[in-house]
Design a protein around this nucleic acid. Structure first.
Lengths: 301, 301
DNA sequence: GCTCCGGTTAAGCGGAACCGATGGTGCGGT
DNA sequence: ACCGCACCATCGGTTCCGCTTAACCGGAGC
């Protein structure tokens, strides 16, 4: 019988990509992970890793094992969940990862509400982009992850992860002082833009949105923090496309509103592993975030 | 996260009944099992065992965990099965348990056929009654178990165990030399009987069959081996109700044939754990036993 | 060229897991 | 009522597994 702990290491490897990442996630040395995976291969009597390159790659047999391991993970999470439910009042530590703008806009309210309603729950918060927080969720490093999915970008369904939509947030166009109200996207063709770094989802959305209108945006400033972007817009640095949450306070003279033309938005999800949905801590977090998001947005409107 | 090895010990306990039996099954000392289960309770933060009596009994929380563990077992068996399938030619050791009369009547042929068709498979045979072999199958001590299920007795479906019917074997009435051919069961009311020990299924079937005919059998001799029973019948010790397989060779003067009245039989099953059905060794055993049983019975007819 | 970065291997250590012995307890038999 | 048996928990001792540190290898990149 295959050792389950080692099998889960293999699954972690599949999710996180490198032995070093697995070691970091599990607080082991890389040597330990390497040894355990070698032992697993001996147990399985089949090569699971391709070590020809510098990085390790799973063989087909390894992939097959990982598929089984995913199902094991679900079952193990469900066991944890039932045990926690039987314990009565929710208590323990919830490891939570949120994307940056949510951290600023809604997380403080959510934490306050949690501590009142579920005093037994302690929260360990990490601000992290979905690109890395979701794999770490799958690997068991986080219990709940707040992530988002932009319109115009391919939707990313992740195996083994369930996500509850807690809100749909519109993208707003932020105009510098004195800029005219655009009738449609096309009217913005010759303006400058403030956007995020290349490779970021936000930036990609801007590019695609402009592409749909028939032009390539002239991006002058590249900053990842929405507050900084806003002040750059206020200083006349250009237009910006920013999610509603990032526009809670506007500098003087800056005007913001829904994008012209068809609606554009991003959906916000609370994600958790498939088997942990019935875990009291996870359920509590999803519940509170759903509430807080609607509250915040009704306040904004 | 709960340790899976300990969880499987709890499942073994649920199946086998006592810590001592689990220890024997796993080749541990009882101390080890006891310690591991205590650790499991600490991990689960819930009492899983009721130790008020001198035997240990599962609490509801323990039962719930066992239910999860059963599903884990299926998944783990399936992992083993896929690994074994990927290895190509079936090889390894198959642990097989058979009930006594099968051991005499069909197992030699089956083993011979196996060793020819699957030379890579080594078989470890144990002769054991289903009452104990099936739990040991569930606990992972055996891979395949030949068991039977008598008409007139409540059918026993076992959780987590799949069984393939390899044959339906008629019960035969064996008459001592000179005994008249009975028109119906009722005609046997005042004869003596040779049967098995009290508590055995065979004995119970005889009692119920006679009860259906309206009388209680007068059991004179109690032996568990069918061959011994046959020689007792031959010596005039009484009638006997014996499965077809137990009557391959008859002593002089003894006459045997299907029971008078409605057919009576026992179904023979090859049982395996739910998740191990696709394991090459298990599939091979089931296949060969199915063949051999039909061959043996066509030879008999 | 060197230096990181990712991975493997070897050697050593600490803790977990297992064993044997002891003692306690409920149950069946005489 | 007594004893014997089977079962289980606990304790101290030992073995062994799993992790760490350290050294080494190969490839990619400033």
């Amino acid at each position: 019988m295959l050792d389950v702990r080692r099998l889960l290491l293999l699954r972690d490897l599949a999710v996180l990509g490198t032995i070093a990442a697995v070691a970091k996630a599990r607080s082991f040395s890389t040597a330990a992970v390497s040894q355990q995976l070698s032992t697993l291969e001996r147990e399985a009597k089949a090569p699971l890793l391709d070590r020809t390159t510098n990085r390790v790659v799973l063989t087909p047999a390894g992939e097959a094992l990982v598929a089984h391991a995913e199902r094991l993970t679900v079952e193990l999470d469900e066991i944890d969940a039932t045990l926690a439910r039987d314990r009565g009042e929710p208590s323990g530590t919830l490891r939570l990862a949120v994307f940056p703008s949510a951290a600023r806009a809604v997380v403080p309210e959510a934490l306050a509400k949690m501590s009142v309603r579920y005093p037994g729950i302690e929260i360990q918060l990490t601000e992290e982009l979905p690109a890395s927080s979701v794999p770490r969720l799958r690997a068991g490093e986080f219990d709940v992850v707040l992530r988002h999915s932009y319109d115009l970008l391919p939707a990313t369904e992740v195996e083994g992860v369930r996500q509850v939509r807690v809100h749909t947030e519109p993208m707003w166009l932020v105009r510098p002082p004195g800029a005219a109200v655009p009738g449609d996207a096309r009217a913005l063709e010759h303006h400058h833009w403030v956007s995020d770094q290349p490779g970021s989802e936000c930036r990609e959305v801007l590019v695609r949105w402009c592409a749909a209108a028939g032009f390539v945006p002239r991006i002058r400033h590249q900053v990842s923090d929405f507050a900084v972007a806003l002040s750059l817009v206020a200083a006349g640095g250009g237009h910006a496309l920013i999610p509603r949450l990032g526009v809670r306070a506007l500098a003087d003279g800056v005007v913001a509103g829904p994008v012209p033309g068809p609606a554009l938005g991003r959906r916000v999800f609370a994600a958790h592993r498939e088997g942990s949905g019935r875990h009291p801590l996870v359920a509590a977090a999803v519940e509170v975030f759903t509430e807080v998001f609607t509250e915040v947005f009704t306040d904004l409107d």
